[in-house]
């Protein structure tokens, strides 16, 4: 065969994810509830703090503006981890076998799935941006909005890869579900998604700097509301390298995964 990337089956895998995504409306709505609560019950009330009250947030920015990209990042983190791990659902319901006995190579299968997961995550991301704007968040510019898509793609690739690695190593849904929060929440909290790094104690800062999610949040914040801790190119390069590494490892793990 020799063909490494097989576009038609990849498209099919992608299409399947999209159909499932739009058919499960309840799941879509419930995935928007938590971000909404964070923005409404943390972002809005804390915005009454006088400017400059929080170190690390510029004087002319309110807390809601600061928080919105973080919550967007959180949504992407959770949905991409799930998308990466959805291979376990297919395994559980037997659908993985059906896919693996077709003459399509596994790399294409994995890429198609990942693109599907990425698309659905980014759609959710745009819904969060929409909600944020309705709440009064100021998006700095259209070009910034377009730039944020780049960061969304990289965040998704990173955590779809990570989710896939976890899923293939754990091998079953029960195991995955029981540890997912233990992994997701620290990634989320040990980042400047909620609060600026400047407010964290020193030891926590070094952990935050090691977390790739930090650079995703920083990049989203830089492109959407025009404030970032690091230069955006710095965020971009770190995230690009991480996402490529995790996707490659994920692809390798999927290649070795047993269908039964």
């Amino acid at each position: 065969m020799g063909k490494i990337i097989d576009p038609l089956p990849m498209y099919t895998m992608w299409l399947r994810q999209m159909i499932r995504f739009f058919r499960m409306k309840a799941r879509l709505v419930s995935s928007l509830v938590m971000p909404f609560l964070f923005l409404a019950f943390l972002g809005i009330p804390l915005s009454i703090l006088p400017s400059g009250a929080m170190p690390g947030i510029p004087e002319d920015m309110n807390f809601l503006d600061y928080l919105a990209p973080g919550i967007l990042g959180m949504t992407l983190l959770f949905s991409s981890m799930m998308a990466g791990a959805s291979v376990l659902w297919d395994k559980e319901f037997g659908f993985l076998k059906e896919v693996l006995v077709t003459p399509v190579n596994r790399l294409s299968i994995m890429l198609g799935r990942s693109l599907g997961g990425m698309t659905t995550s980014i759609i959710q991301g745009f819904m969060i941006i929409g909600i944020s704007v309705l709440m009064g968040v100021n998006i700095s510019s259209v070009s910034g909005l377009l730039l944020s898509i780049v960061f969304m793609v990289l965040i998704c690739a990173t955590f779809i890869g990570f989710g896939l690695i976890l899923a293939t190593q754990l091998g079953e849904m029960e195991g995955f579900m029981s540890i997912i929060n233990m992994i997701q929440m620290p990634i989320f909290f040990a980042s400047p998604a909620f609060l600026p790094m400047e407010m964290m104690p020193h030891w926590l800062k070094s952990i935050i700097c090691l977390n790739p999610f930090t650079y995703g949040i920083d990049g989203l914040r830089g492109s959407l509301v025009g404030y970032s801790t690091f230069p955006l190119i710095h965020d971009f390069v770190i995230l690009l390298v991480t996402s490529i590494v995790l996707m490659l490892v994920g692809a390798y793990c999927f290649e070795k995964m047993e269908a039964n």
């Binding site: 038609l8 099919t12 399947r16 319901f93 037997g94 659908f95 076998k97 006995v101």
Partner: peptide, 29 residues
């Protein structure tokens, strides 16, 4: 793989898709 078709012992079909979508999915693979 190209010359066989399989029906597994356990159900292996995507429940969220329609029958036609499942068939089309398989065909494009």
């Amino acid at each position: 793989r190209r010359s066989i078709g399989i029906v597994f012992q356990d159900p292996c079909i995507d429940n969220f898709l329609t029958g036609r979508e499942n068939l089309a999915f398989h065909a494009t693979m």
